[in-house]
Computed example of a mutant assay.
Amino acid sequence: MEKHLILFDIDGTLLNDDMRISKKTIDIVSSLQKKGHLFYIASGRLLSSARSYSEMLGKNIGTIAANGSVYTLGNEIVKNRLKDEAVSAIFEACKIYPKLQLRLFSTDTAYGMGGMLQAFMNLASKTKFKKIKSKADLDRLNTFITNGILCANDLSVLAGAKEFLKDAPSLCLSSSNEHNIELIPSGRSKAAALKDVAQKYGIKPQNTIAFGNGENDLPMLIESGHGVAMANSPRHVLEQADVVTKSNNEDGIYAFLSKYFAEDLES
Rank of each mutant, 00 (worst) to 15 (best):
S69C: 08
S69R: 04
V70L: 01
N75R: 06
N75F: 08
E76W: 09
E76F: 04
E76T: 15
E76G: 08
I77T: 11
V78M: 03
R81Q: 15
R81S: 12
R81Y: 13
L82F: 11
K83F: 13
E85L: 10
S88F: 07
I90H: 02
I90A: 12
F91M: 04
F91V: 07
E92R: 15
A93T: 11
C94S: 10
C94R: 12
Y97T: 10
Y97E: 10
K99E: 15
K99D: 15
L100K: 05
Q101W: 09
L102H: 03
S106Q: 02
S106D: 02
S106I: 01
T107N: 14
T107P: 06
T107A: 11
A110I: 07
Y111T: 00
G112C: 09
M113H: 10
M113C: 13
G114R: 07
G115N: 11
M116G: 14
L117A: 06
Q118M: 04
Q118S: 09
Q118N: 10
A119L: 01
A119R: 12
M121Y: 01
M121K: 06
M121P: 02
N122A: 07
N122P: 00
A124D: 14
S125G: 01
S125A: 08
T127P: 05
T127A: 04
T127S: 10
K128P: 04
K128C: 06
K128S: 12
K128T: 14
K130F: 01
K130Q: 07
K131L: 08
K135N: 04
K135L: 14
A136N: 08
L138F: 01
R140C: 09
L141E: 11
T143F: 05
T143D: 01
T143R: 08
F144C: 00
I145L: 08
I145C: 04
T146F: 03
N147E: 08
G148F: 09
I149W: 05
L150S: 02
A152P: 00
N153H: 14
D154F: 01
D154E: 15
L155Y: 03
L155G: 01
S156G: 07
S156F: 12
A159C: 02
A159L: 04
A161N: 04
A161Y: 05
E163T: 08
F164S: 01
L165K: 03
K166E: 09
K166P: 06
D167P: 00
D167T: 00
A168K: 06
P169A: 02
S170W: 05
S170C: 08
S170T: 02
L171N: 11
C172A: 15
L173M: 00
S175C: 13
N177T: 12
N177A: 10
E178K: 14
N180I: 03
I181M: 03
E182I: 14
E182M: 14
L183C: 13
I184Q: 09
I184T: 14
S186Y: 10
R188I: 11
R188F: 14
S189M: 11
